[in-house]
């Protein structure tokens, strides 16, 4: 049971991180490889701020969310938007957006590495996590917050995209940008809004993860990016529900390997699993049939 709980916590961590990336990819079609750097830098600014003033939990989160949203919007303004403007079609832009994201990501990473010399950094907060013990299961308040927020935001976003007008507009963009623009969807505004939300989510994940793990290093974002990418593809590109499931599948697989104490095989098992699932379901678990994106 404890292992299931651990897997749920780990899955929620991955989910919080992956949600922003999945949202942007599923709607405005941008695969943002700077997401990990946004996550890290939001936590890093939080670290710098809290080293001077002690903030309550909500204060720390607010700082990180704002920084995350800001970086994300800047990325969109300075990198992705110009590419989309110049590209003839989305297919041509795809690879360049990927590379631009990688380039952008190198900048905050270099700054944080220089400032910290890659020593781990944490967040100082008046909030101190409690440990609860229920039916022999141990869980911290931070873990509870992560699980609840991960599930609420994940499911909430899925429903919102499905039901609301904005959600419809966004999904329309994801399916056919030109036509939906012709039908009155303001693409630029929506794109900036989505990037801001995604950046905010990266910041939220940054703050909560740093609290849960105690500290992160500048390179932590890089390690999560590849997992998030795996989760999004596993769930099926463009499907938020798929992302939620993908996160827990990956976390479940990793936890299982740990319980069996095959620690050094973690990546082989989890990525092997993803490999096999893709063979069985070439569009991911819940992916829509690709229109044509080869």
């Amino acid at each position: 049971m404890q292992d299931v709980l651990n897997a749920t916590t780990l899955g929620s961590i991955y989910l919080l991180f992956a949600l922003g990336m999945a949202l942007v990819w599923g709607t405005i079609g941008i695969l943002n490889f700077a997401h990990g750097a946004t996550f890290m830098f939001a936590a890093f600014i939080g670290h710098l701020v809290t080293a001077r003033v002690e903030l309550p939990l909500l204060g720390v989160i607010a700082v990180a969310v704002l920084v995350g949203a800001l970086i994300s919007v800047l990325t969109q303004l300075l990198a992705f938007q110009p590419i989309l403007k110049r590209a003839k079609n989305r297919h041509a832009a795809e690879l360049r957006i990927l590379i631009a994201g990688i380039g952008v990501a190198a900048i905050p990473l270099a700054i944080a590495q220089r400032q910290t010399r890659s020593t781990p950094f944490g967040l100082r907060s008046s909030y101190s996590p409690q440990v609860y013990e229920v039916f022999g299961l141990r869980i911290t308040t931070t873990a509870i917050i992560i699980i609840v927020l991960g599930l609420v935001i994940g499911i909430g976003m899925t429903l919102w995209l499905r039901r609301s007008r904005h959600g419809l507009a966004l999904r329309a963009l994801g399916v056919d940008a030109e036509t939906s623009a012709g039908m009155g969807v303001n693409r630029t505004t929506l794109a900036f809004g989505t990037m801001a939300v995604a950046g905010g989510l990266a910041g939220l994940a940054g703050a909560l993860l740093t609290l849960q793990l105690g500290a992160i290093a500048p390179e932590t974002g890089d390690q999560l990016i590849i997992k998030a990418f795996a989760i999004i593809v596993l769930g099926g590109l463009g499907s938020m529900a798929g992302t939620v499931i993908g996160a827990y599948v990956l976390a479940g697989a990793e936890t299982l390997v740990l319980v069996m104490n095959w620690g050094t095989w973690v990546d082989a098992v989890s990525f092997g699993l993803i490999f096999l699932i893709l063979l069985a379901r070439p569009q991911g678990l819940l992916g829509r049939k690709e229109v044509r994106r080869t």
């Binding site: 404890q2 292992d3 620690g263």
Partner: peptide, 18 residues
């Protein structure tokens, strides 16, 4: 007990409880 982890392991809740 001998618990091996990888470079990419970030959460140690499971190992700590073991």
């Amino acid at each position: 007990q001998s618990l091996a982890v990888q470079m990419t392991t970030q959460d140690f809740a499971g190992q700590s409880q073991q």
